[in-house]
Design a protein around this nucleic acid. Structure first.
Length: 464
RNA sequence: GGUCCCUUCGUCUAUCGGUUAGGACACAUGGUUUUCAUCCAUGAAAGAGGGGUUCGAUUCCCCUAGGGACCGCCA
């Protein structure tokens, strides 16, 4: 049996969204599962709209989530000449023909079909006409001579058998008036040249498949196997488009979603393996298969992404997490000096406790990062005279100890509680507000210990 | 309008004719906790509708409804 080879073939006409990333991931996983190869092909034949920045964005997105392709990326535009050769061959063999219809003529037919509410299909006017009848002033396009009789069935690895009447497939254009090949010609040609065994792509390509397999057959090439996966929908139930916000990798990266978490989320979106929810990278490769892919489209669920990310944050080692955090702050927040980074590193266990994203950890760390603590009105009003007095006694007592840890701090706080006939909140809340500016946050001992004596004294003494 | 596809809790899904229809996220309640969280426990929550086939259908078939994709000299 042939070694499995898959590919992901995005066009750089817009940023790659999360649905495309999932398609790439499925292709990659499938090839890895079969010990095969995975390739990347940039379909940049639309010169008008293809942009280098989009290509870079695509490359970065795939790299970020760990979908690495074998070999160099294949640039489709570099291969146009060989595509044209194939078109000529098709022409010579009688599988294609020149169509001299003007654009206006075609447009008019489409319009008329629309008015009559009948489906438009090219009328095959030039299919059997002889060249001698060709008008001199019109450059022809080349159309593929599509089958008219009978029906075609494909055995889709995800969708099962799909049958279609051949006469619903029109004589599609394979070479434009400007002499460049179209997608439905270039894609199968490249897939053949690249030796693809499995084409795994969005099910928006389903109908194209019936065009493309005719190309394979005309050329007597072996057809690859097809698997059309359902598209990801927005919460509104529509196809994810390039214009939907919060749908590119960059958007997730910006709020501090981690690659592993998104990979895990994406693999379980429209695919399942029993009841298993968490898949390590190795497990993803080990268990991924086409049978587990559902046939219905699934919706993107942000709360699920968040909770998956939370899981990965909690289950990563502190060292790894810290490394990711440092990187994240550098790229999306600010450069934090080493002294503060060290404090954060030591405090990660409690800083990550209530975090769903890297951004949450950053926000939780603000009392360490910021030198000036800003106390809002609402919190300020909780600092009563009584509370301030408690703080003053705390300041005095804490000034006398050198080592800050739970053993040294606990007696002080307990004393204050009984001296002032209050509860823990009576002492803890003002302390927390002054030290962090917030009513909420990590445990008060954690805060004090992580800040250290100097910072604690500084902040507390500022409160009159 | 034509062609093709889809339909289990709000969401992602399990079930490959016989289950009290299971899990996860989200949600609600309770408990632990020095606040918020975490954590733990509990709860509410689903087979679109109608016909068949069958001793028995969520599962197989048909119809209806709803949803989606495609219908470019874009990919």
């Amino acid at each position: 049996m042939k070694k499995v080879a898959t590919r992901f073939a995005p066009s750089p006409t817009g940023p790659l969204h999360i649905g495309g990333v999932r398609t790439a991931l499925f292709n990659w996983l499938y090839s890895k599962n079969h010990n095969g190869k995975f390739f990347l092909r940039i379909e940049d034949t639309d010169k008008e709209r293809s942009k280098e920045e989009f290509k870079l964005q695509i490359l970065n997105s795939l790299k970020w989530i760990g979908v690495n392709h074998d070999g160099e990326e294949y640039i489709q535009s570099k291969n146009i000449e060989s595509h044209i050769k194939i078109v000529n061959k098709l022409l010579e063999n009688g599988n294609a023909y020149k169509c001299y219809c003007s654009s206006d003529e075609i447009e008019e037919q489409k319009l008329r079909a629309k008015q009559k509410k009948i489906p438009y299909i090219y009328n095959r006017k030039w299919r059997d006409k002889s060249e001698t009848e060709a008008p001199q002033d019109i450059k022809p396009v080349i159309r593929f001579k599509s089958k008219i009789e009978g029906s075609t069935k494909i055995n889709d690895l995800v969708q099962g058998d799909i049958k279609i009447e051949n006469n619903t497939i029109e004589d599609f254009i394979i070479l434009r008036r400007d002499g460049t090949p179209t997608y439905n010609l270039s894609a199968p040609v490249d897939d053949h040249i690249m030796g693809m065994t499995h084409i795994i792509r969005g099910d928006d390509h389903k109908i194209n498949t019936f065009k493309q397999i005719q190309i394979y057959e005309a050329l007597r090439w072996e057809t690859p196997l097809f698997a059309h996966i359902p598209l990801i929908h927005t919460l509104e139930g529509k196809k994810l488009s390039k214009r939907d916000n919060a749908s590119t990798i960059d958007d997730y990266e910006k709020i501090g979603i981690m690659p592993d978490a998104l990979r895990n989320y994406l693999i379980r979106l429209g695919w399942s393996y029993k009841d298993k929810e968490i898949f390590s990278l190795e497990e993803s490769i080990k268990y991924f298969n086409l049978e587990g892919i559902g046939k219905s489209p699934s919706k993107l669920d942000m709360s699920r992404i968040l909770s998956m990310n939370e899981y990965y944050i909690k289950n990563k080692s502190n060292d790894d997490l810290f490394q990711s955090f440092e990187e994240y702050c550098k790229n999306f927040k600010e450069n934090i000096n080493n002294e503060k980074l060290n404090i954060i590193k030591k405090s990660l266990t409690f800083l990550k406790n209530k975090a769903k994203t890297m951004e949450d950890i950053y926000n939780n760390s603000k009392f360490i990062i910021n030198d000036e603590i800003i106390i809002e009105k609402a919190e300020m009003s909780l600092l009563t005279e009584n509370a301030k007095n408690i703080i003053k006694s705390f300041l005095k007592k804490v000034n006398e100890i050198e080592v800050f840890n739970k053993e040294t701090l606990e007696p002080i706080i307990n004393n204050l509680i009984s001296e002032n006939q209050t509860n823990f909140k009576g002492v803890g809340q003002p302390l927390r507000i002054i030290l962090t500016g917030s009513k909420f946050g990590p445990g008060i001992y954690d805060i004090i210990i992580s800040l250290g004596k100097k910072r604690v004294l500084d902040r507390l003494s500022k409160v009159g």
